[in-house]
Design a protein around this nucleic acid. Structure first.
Lengths: 297, 297
DNA sequence: CAACCTCATGAGATATTTTCATATCATACA
DNA sequence: TGTATGATATGAAAATATCTCATGAGGTTG
């Protein structure tokens, strides 16, 4: 017969006891109250002993539960301390991040200070991930890329970071000079800025007006950042992914001209090699968690 | 970011460190070496630190691994102790076992002493489970039953205990008196003992000779135990499940007359109610584990 | 009361853990 | 030098455990 009960149930119980409530334990462990309830019950069933006294709107420890909780508290503290100590010995290899230029310029670098502030002695090497050029995962721990379809890379794991849907935007100065730009007709009259090719605007006009429209005039930029510079300096209307120009919109540097989005299926993805070198795995984990958190903001 | 690494990985690592090898740790935890390997690696990835030095035919702890192992050893010991203490407080409600008469008489009761010796202060109440009569799981924690098909009972969980295949057997004394009983012809000439109905022998003759044979003579007993008594006292040949007369065969009280078995699809099952009352759950677990272990013997 | 806590629960979705079936690697021995 | 041997590694599939969702039930509190 088994010697020790399920460890995860013990942890859940310990958290519940310490926090004096299932819901609070659930918050601590980043799970639902339901999960804690299931786990505590599992433990009680395993022992054949009631650990919490329910009813009265809250759960109180039984005497047996109290004793168990005290010992477990000590033990888990010891475990946590020991683990922290091990982590601290992890050496300072830099984390290699490869990011597409647009994200780097508009989103990541402005937020980078926040990350480094929270994570001191966390060396980082930031490089470009160029679209269409495979990422060398021997030199990259984590990457951020853009993809029009659901991303599936052979030896890597993809996690969506944020959506890639684009809307027409321009600078306030352009509006002042040109007058209002509402609806496809007016927008078509303004200088159009293209990223890479003509496809974006063609799609957008098709979607808004229901019919094909030639959109092969205006300037085509090699790269998103160039197009954005042009848009910022009032040279025309550009189709930009909402997610990455949110700072520009908030600051009033750019103004969205329509609700209609294109490329709604596209997204920005976090890419990690399927198997990370040991020394960079925890850093990658930390950074990824921060990315996902920052993406919500 | 997470505060503690996966607990199960920590346990695997601790066992590997203490046992000085993955394979031995695997034995201790009743898993495969592969599982330990995966878990230790997971932990190393989590920490970003090498915990074991591989190569040289065996794994040795790194300095960091050594420190971690020591702390974890202490912590897990404390956990185990605390859990043992809780279990000991579990009060002594009796375990209610319901068993079909054949198993009770031939198999369980002869082994019961062994169980009670290993498990002192473990009160037991043994009752009959009568075939065809539903088991009242309000008064039964665990049951052993027989079924010709794969068993599925609504609010209960069934675990196969041992096979139910039957062979012809008789006492040595009958053989002495009657002469050898080899093959269907000779057996047909001896008095046949029936359990419940004629079906058993009909099936057996059909299986051995390939053709139907009337087998409606001989004595029909209400119950297996009666038939067994008759067989033991040399009154004829009976079809008995191999599993439950193994003691009789070993002791030479009964002799198997053929290799050909019937009811090969049938089996004896352990039945547990889907949700056990808290106080009996651990006892049930213990008893079930013992049953399954004893079944292998 | 009614709003708002608390914990409970069953079913289904998700994630983790384990196994299986090899692969690799170093050592010992012939 | 080959094998044989005894260790760990590994990828994919299977088996389990865990978590969430959606909801229920019971208790406080204004």
């Amino acid at each position: 017969m088994d010697q020790t009960p399920p460890l995860n149930a013990l942890r859940a119980f310990e958290a519940a006891a310490r926090n004096n409530g299932f819901s609070r334990a659930a918050d601590e462990l980043f799970v639902t109250q339901s999960a804690i309830s299931h786990q505590v019950r599992q433990l009680e069933d395993w022992f054949g002993v009631q650990l919490f006294e329910r009813g009265g709107g809250r759960a109180r420890l039984t005497p047996q539960g109290e004793g168990l909780a005290r010992s477990l508290g000590d033990a888990f503290t010891e475990i946590r301390d020991a683990c922290r100590k091990v982590r601290e010995t992890a050496v300072g290899e830099p984390l290699n991040i490869a990011v597409i230029p647009s994200i780097a310029a508009c989103w990541l670098i402005p937020r980078m200070a926040e990350f480094t502030a929270e994570n001191s002695d966390f060396p980082i090497r930031l490089t470009y991930a160029i679209h269409g050029q495979p990422i060398d995962f021997n030199q990259t721990d984590i990457a951020i890329v853009y993809s029009r379809e659901k991303l599936a890379v052979p030896r890597a794991r993809a996690t969506p970071l944020f959506p890639g849907a684009s809307v027409p935007v321009c600078s306030q100065s352009l509006l002042d000079w040109h007058g209002p730009l509402t609806g496809p007709e007016q927008i078509a009259g303004a200088p159009l800025l293209h990223d890479t090719d003509w496809r974006g605007w063609s799609d957008w006009f098709l979607k808004t007006t229901g019919q094909e429209r030639r959109a092969d005039d205006g300037v085509v930029f090699e790269d998103f950042n160039l197009m954005r510079s042009a848009a910022l300096s009032g040279q025309g209307v550009a189709l930009c992914p909402l997610s990455i120009i949110q700072d520009d919109l908030k600051a009033g540097r750019l103004v969205a001209l329509s609700e209609t989005t294109i490329d709604e299926e596209s997204a920005y993805y976090i890419l990690e090699p399927a198997s990370l070198p040991r020394t960079s795995a925890p850093k990658t984990r930390t950074f990824k968690a921060w990315l996902l958190d920052a993406a919500i903001n």
